[in-house]
């Protein structure tokens, strides 16, 4: 079989498997990035405005998560958390359950993304001119509304470059989930390559798919950044 036959979407080609792997990867990356944004926003506000205990706990979280290699975190969180959940279920007299790979992947990578996003968003919030926040306070804006309508939109332009990095890292970190047997793009590629011995063809194809994903993402983030910085005079970006 030539390379194009190998990459055909229908069996005996493996292209369909690769695309399903891509869909799984994107799904997990999207979920993890979203979860990371939620954790990061809460974490950034906690670090900036929280009490001492909140700040210490968040410091512990961001330090540990950023210090330990992600592969190890994934193994710890995946197996330890699965085990913990199962022990709790068994203790309550239930049956051993299989945790969905997608949900576990999103949770694990989301916790990792959240630590980095906390720092990205904290820096971006600090970059908002304090006078803009003060003006909103002086006009009687309640704190949550102020965060949602003034601080977050104003910091977005500062946050986008860092967040775009996090998204691209998320898309590639999904490959680490192969170690827990999740069928994302890299895992599918290895299976296809192993079964056909056409290593070069499949890994090149996977590389090309990751490249396209990156290019599309960069274009999207550039659009978002242009929108977020709509109030700024044009300058080299």
């Amino acid at each position: 079989m030539g390379p194009f036959d190998l990459l055909a979407l229908e069996p005996p080609g493996w292209g369909g498997n690769l695309l399903r792997g891509l869909a799984n990867s994107v799904q997990i990356a999207f979920g993890a990035f979203g979860l990371g944004l939620l954790i990061g926003t809460a974490g950034a506000y906690g670090k900036l405005y929280g009490g001492k205990i909140t700040r210490d706990l968040l410091g512990l979280y961001t330090t540990i998560v950023r210090a330990v290699p992600e592969l190890i975190l994934i193994l710890i969180l995946y197996f330890a958390v699965t085990d913990l959940v199962n022990q709790m279920v068994l203790a309550m007299g239930g049956e051993r359950i299989q945790i969905s790979g997608v949900l576990a992947g999103i949770a694990v990578l989301g916790v990792v993304q959240g630590a980095y996003a906390t720092e990205v968003l904290r820096g971006a919030i600090l970059a908002v001119p304090p006078g803009q926040i003060e003006a909103a306070r002086a006009m009687g804006m309640p704190p949550v509304k102020l965060a949602w309508r003034i601080t977050l939109p104003a910091m977005l332009g500062f946050a986008i470059p860092g967040l775009a990095n996090l998204w691209l890292i998320a898309t590639k970190d999904t490959a680490l989930l192969a170690v827990v047997g999740f069928n994302e793009l890299t895992q599918e590629t290895r299976q296809a390559a192993g079964a056909t011995k056409a290593f070069f063809t499949f890994f090149l194809a996977a590389g090309a798919i990751y490249l396209v994903l990156t290019l599309v993402s960069s274009w999207g983030f550039a659009r978002i950044e242009a929108w977020a910085r709509r109030g700024e005079p044009r300058r080299s970006r």
């Binding site: 001119p129 006078g131 803009q132 003060e134 003006a135 909103a136 306070r137 002086a138 006009m139 009687g140 003034i150 939109p153 104003a154 977005l156 332009g157 977020a228 709509r230 109030g231 700024e232």
Partner: peptide, 17 residues
């Protein structure tokens, strides 16, 4: 009460976005 007091700052503090 803040809504009943219009404040004008030295550095304008308009919302840039």
């Amino acid at each position: 009460i803040r809504q009943s007091l219009g404040m004008v700052f030295q550095s304008f503090n308009l919302w840039t976005h």
